[in-house]
């Protein structure tokens, strides 16, 4: 069971909308930045990309926007690994401001060899490190789908 506290960053003024709060389209930016830090943590970040040409591509995201975020604020991102396969990583980020949950994100990524132009397996040691970091139990909001009661 591992909760990864890897990333903090301030809200930037250019992310605000006319209402003075963090615009919906920008929640994914700090989450995406946190993914880069997560990649570094597991040895598959920028230096790895430069050495191997392999990158982590996002194929699916599911965000829940739970609370407004106003300027100024420090975003604290908490990350959890949910699952790993040779080519895929399934994980979440939670966004907190002063210990209050403002958003959650669930992500599926592919390990992509940009030199070959195709999906490729990650190194065994990376897979093992990710596997040993899988969270247990899962948060109860993981794996839900979007629906209205009438849908």
């Amino acid at each position: 069971m591992t909760l990864l506290n890897l990333h903090n960053e301030p809200v930037r003024e250019e992310w605000l909308d006319a209402y003075g709060h963090l615009n919906e389209a920008y929640y994914l930016v700090p989450f995406s930045n946190a993914t880069w830090v997560l990649q570094e943590h597991f040895g598959i970040g920028v230096p790895y990309f430069e050495e191997t040409g392999c990158a982590i591509y996002t194929v699916e995201t599911h965000l829940r926007y739970l609370k407004e975020v106003r300027f100024p604020a420090i975003l604290h991102i908490e990350s959890m690994i949910l699952g790993v396969e040779s080519r895929k990583i399934w994980f979440t980020h939670r966004m907190l401001v002063n210990d209050e949950e403002c958003a959650t994100g669930e992500f599926m990524t592919l390990h992509f060899d940009t030199r070959d132009g195709r999906v490729s397996p990650m190194h065994k040691t990376v897979i093992e490190h990710l596997q040993s970091s899988i969270i247990d139990p899962f948060p109860n909001w993981v794996g839900r789908k979007i629906k209205l009661k009438q849908d």
Partner: peptide
């Protein structure tokens, strides 16, 4: 306000 989104890239 946006409450939730789910995207496939």
């Amino acid at each position: 306000y946006l409450l939730e989104d789910h995207k496939f890239y």
